[in-house]
Design a protein around this nucleic acid. Structure first.
Lengths: 207, 207
DNA sequence: ATGAATGTGAGTATCCTGTTTATATTCTCG
DNA sequence: CGAGAATATAAACAGGATACTCACATTCAT
């Protein structure tokens, strides 16, 4: 139900063993997400993150070999969360409107804590060492869910993947824009976003 | 038809008088847009811009008092362009589908040269000295056009402004996403985006 | 109580940044 | 032509920020 997924041990210099250090690592990642969301990649410095986490810079480097490893950990955590939200909304067949409602609710929830983290992660933060493993794999699974949903509600075979891309990026655009002006929890916005999804997927038929 | 709007003389240290210097200023702004789009705000440095423009750093400071004035000039130019596109698409009453087609065509065109400039300008680049004049004024006029369009095709009085915001940010989201993966000129994408707009604005009736 | 795990933060070594300035080149116009 | 204005050049500067290390202090598990 939440984000409890076995951590595949992101590339770390040392594995935290005691409860204390686990909390430290968690605090660093959390603070990192906050800094990234609030200051963007340009303002994301290791010293700043350590300070925001209430931890010495030395502790940070005890677990993360370098800046990139930290971003990667943040990315992994956030993407896993978002993925679980979509996965849940698209699970077992439900009426279109309910799917839209749950999807919107989940996506907004996932963006409420660090409103612009998602965009920063996608647009500004550099990919992990060319491999782009986490990034690409996320994008793939992300789109798979949307594609499945589109296929379910739109019988038309053609353009299914394009539709999935359009749908997902439209939703992200709306949410990102709302996040920028602190309007994520405006009810009319949620309603209209649901409307948008329904209208597009029902493709001209009444909702 | 293009971007020929009288330049209100953005804050400059010195007005270019000869043809030579006008070309220089133009080259600087153009290069600035390129750098901003390709490297983001984090990679946007005056020296880099000067080099990209094939101009010495000194020339840059002859006309722009500081870094921010340059961004402001870039912003003004880009926003004016985008605004003229929307304005034209929303002009005189046309059938919904035609409006959607022209809007999509124009917006994609406006993003083709510097694909991610728009987003960088909105998300990363700092606003102009608190006043936020150009920025806010742009946003206002931008939304006005969308609101007018929504009001025209959607008879429902309520939520008109919210709908305009949802519509505009959805479009931007799709275009931005496509720009990121160099798919701006994919025809199916354009088609689906038109579909999205039509479906949302026709609100459940057949397109 | 002892060694391992964890935490500290001043310090280092770069690298870059925005901007100025003194000088050189090119234009305008009488 | 030639003189003063406009324009262009790039070396240099001062300052700040950056990612990261290291020698040491503290706290844990056993």
């Amino acid at each position: 139900m939440s984000t409890r997924i076995a951590k595949p041990a992101a590339r770390m210099r040392k594995q935290p063993r005691q409860a204390r250090s686990i909390a430290t690592v968690e605090a660093i990642i959390e603070a990192g997400a906050r800094v990234l969301s609030e200051l963007g990649w340009a303002g994301f410095s290791t010293n700043k993150v350590a300070e925001a986490a209430g931890v010495s810079i030395g502790s940070l480097y005890q677990y993360f070999p370098d800046k990139l490893a930290l971003v990667e950990a943040i990315r992994r955590r956030h993407f896993d969360h978002v993925l679980s939200v979509i996965s849940e909304a698209a699970a077992d067949e439900k009426p279109l409107r309910q799917f839209a409602r749950e999807l919107v609710r989940g996506m907004i929830g996932a963006h409420s804590i660090h409103p612009t983290l998602h965009q920063v992660l996608l647009d500004e933060a550099p990919g992990d060492r060319g491999s782009r493993a986490a990034h690409a794999s996320f994008q793939t699974r992300y789109l798979e869910h949307y594609t499945a949903a589109v296929a379910q509600y739109r019988k038309r075979r053609k353009d299914t993947e394009t539709m999935a891309r359009v749908l997902s990026s439209a939703i992200e655009g709306v949410i990102h824009n709302a996040a920028r002006r602190n309007m994520l929890d405006t009810p009319e916005l949620q309603k209209q976003l649901i409307e948008l999804i329904s209208a597009y997927l029902s493709g001209g038929r009444a909702t």
